[in-house]
Design a protein around this nucleic acid. Structure first.
Lengths: 378, 378
DNA sequence: GTTAGTAAGGAAGGTCTACTAACAAACGTG
DNA sequence: CACGTTTGTTAGTAGACCTTCCTTACTAAC
């Protein structure tokens, strides 16, 4: 709707239908051609044609006949060759080190590698990244479909890092440069968006209104609405970390004033909800006081979340970060606060829970980036 | 991306390209086939084919040769027949009356009709609506492409009014029923979304991150991000009116406690920012005090807006409602507050201004609903 | 006035896509 | 064992866009 800016050719339609078939195989496992036809609403003939194309490319293979005895000719199952290809995923969210992995198409980590960043920035950091990627490519035991990278900062649709202050990258065409150098497709996205993708695909989140809040050194979010990852006007959607949540009358118990933030202002969400801020706040407190302190942070978070949940009519909010800090008073207070501050029609259907993927969410997400970009699967 | 759930056929591609041509003609006026080909990146042959199809349907006509003298064969311009068709638009936002109009395809009101609602609800209200629509259809002087309706409440993709308490409509398939009865296509959407569409198409809003806040009896919003109108999990996106903005320490000057809201809770945005609430607040105050009171409401609004603007990376926020109430301290305070409470990268590019379409925004939007639904133009 | 170059629009033919129709193979069921 | 059912394939058709070539009609330059 609204802006069909580019032409569509029949071959695009075919690519779409091809992705549709692959998508079904990816999520539902081996399926007969006839069942695929029913699922996609294409004809058996068309599905057969698409499948044989996929088989020729080696992405799909026949998996023998279906075991269950039914009336009619037994169906030959076809399934995606998830074992025959691998993906390289890299997570740049951590300031201290670059983490990467060779992953299977079903999201398992096969080889893990990480290198200390040692404060390298600019071209230097890019060199380190390229080396890590090369190493991982070499470590792969199967053909690699592509490299997926979750980077902090603002990343545009073409994989250009518009700005990532931590690495001093400004307008770096990361995807293009690495792709040329490595000889495989490279996909780059914001790390929060990447994690949201991961939760969506491997974490079982519904996707019809999903916000994944990443709590780490800072705070960020990835948002999936109407089945689409939101990018925003300047590709900066989800930047919730620097919304002011603490002001003169909303100070937290024990704080004399709103804490200064790395962004130069005061009272940002990041100053209370980031992992360092949370740890600092409960440091040395007895359990009861710690819980109260965490709950007060949760309330602030809920206040910020309420307008967003209402505006987007979200179904799920996931917290991704250390469970010992988040999955308790913080989460409960946030949920209670959102429920208090939004209309029942919105809040009743809202689920606010911990993300199901743990540490490796970012890697999974980076892998999904590749699957989505190269195969149209997610 | 992410969820290509349905198959795409070559004929869908053609429909898309057809809409592309029409879209260009709608926005840029008469154009030569060759220029259309360059704009759409289709070949001249294909464009010629599409244009001749459109000409046969009477939607497009040749408009003589281009005036300017250039090298080569002079171009024959083709233009959309905006004069030969009309649209019926109806606005149900007002509790007291149903307002409707016959409109041209360029958004001019040609005939205006309104009927008192007289508190009619349920099937009774539907009957009144059908009569109004029939009357307007009869009043049209050209063939009517369709009927567009902006209704309060939650409306789903198929034009079913899921719930509209004011009219006691619950699960009413408005579009389907009226379409059968009137014999023309009917499109229904939430009134706030409709207005957002209107501002987007006729108001010159950019569409890459647009929120239109409707301030009337209540408060609602329509949101366009990444060139798409947000629907939300349960088609309730934009319901900002019932987010709590007033709490214990955020009371407005002069108020003893947060005001009760029609939704049963207290301190909703609607209790301070709706037209009645604003009027009540400044009633009897001298200008200076009134400005201060309005500014304090604007601040509350800004606090609510800041997380939404950040999360969605919005480019434009439009206020639609009485300018004498909104276009002053309210708007200024809201903008200042959003700027204070969001990171510069987000707020610097934000424009918060009054909507350009006035009273008739809802009607224009309803017309766009039809153009968009029937012709793929918006 | 004539010739060359340029641009618009149309006609013919080719390729690609998905569909319908018809069929052979392989299996339960009565 | 004949029959109906389901699967997957083959052959033919309709639609959609493309490339190529042609005519028409104009400007620019000699």
């Amino acid at each position: 709707m609204l802006r069909p800016m580019v032409k569509v050719l029949p071959e695009h339609a075919r690519a779409h239908n091809r992705a549709l078939v692959l998508q079904h195989l990816f999520h539902s496992g081996p399926t007969s051609r006839a069942d695929l036809a029913r699922a996609t609403e294409l004809t058996r003939v068309t599905v057969s044609d698409l499948v044989s194309e996929l088989i020729e490319e080696g992405l799909v293979a026949e998996r023998g006949v279906r075991a269950e005895a039914r009336v009619g000719k037994p169906a030959t199952l076809v399934g995606m060759c998830t074992e025959d290809f691998q993906v390289v995923a890299i997570d740049l969210a951590d300031d201290a080190s670059f983490r990467g992995a060779v992953m299977s198409l079903v999201g398992e980590v096969l080889v893990r590698r990480s290198v200390p960043a040692e404060g390298r920035v600019g071209a230097d950091a890019l060199e380190l990244l390229a080396e890590l990627a090369s190493e991982l490519l070499a470590a792969a035991t199967r053909p690699v479909i592509g490299v997926g990278i979750g980077s902090p900062g603002v990343v545009d649709r073409d994989g250009v890092v518009v700005e990532a202050p931590n690495r001093a990258w400004y307008g770096v065409p990361l995807a293009e440069q690495l792709s040329t150098r490595l000889g495989v497709p490279v996909h780059v996205a914001n790390d929060a968006n990447t994690r949201a993708l991961g939760e969506y695909t491997y974490g079982g989140a519904s996707g019809e209104g999903l916000l994944v809040l990443i709590v780490g050194q800072g705070v960020g979010a990835g948002i999936v609405v109407d089945g689409m990852l939101l990018k925003g006007h300047r590709d900066a959607a989800g930047e919730l970390g620097h919304v002011t949540v603490v002001d003169d009358h909303d100070r937290l118990p024990g704080d004399a004033e709103a804490a200064p933030c790395a962004c130069g202002r005061r009272g940002c969400l990041e100053t209370v909800l980031s992992v360092p801020a949370l740890r600092r706040r409960i440091d040395g407190l007895d359990p009861q006081d710690a819980d109260a302190a965490l709950a007060s942070v949760g309330r602030l978070h809920g206040v910020t979340l309420a307008p967003v949940v209402s505006a987007l009519n979200l179904a799920e909010v996931l917290l991704s970060g250390p469970a010992e800090l988040l999955d308790g008073p913080v989460r409960q207070a946030a949920l209670d606060t959102v429920r208090e501050r939004t209309m029942p029609a919105v809040s009743e259907q809202l689920s606010l829970r911990m993300a199901t993927l743990g540490e490796d969410a970012a890697l999974s997400g980076a892998a999904v980036l590749v699957l989505s970009g190269q195969l149209g699967v997610s």
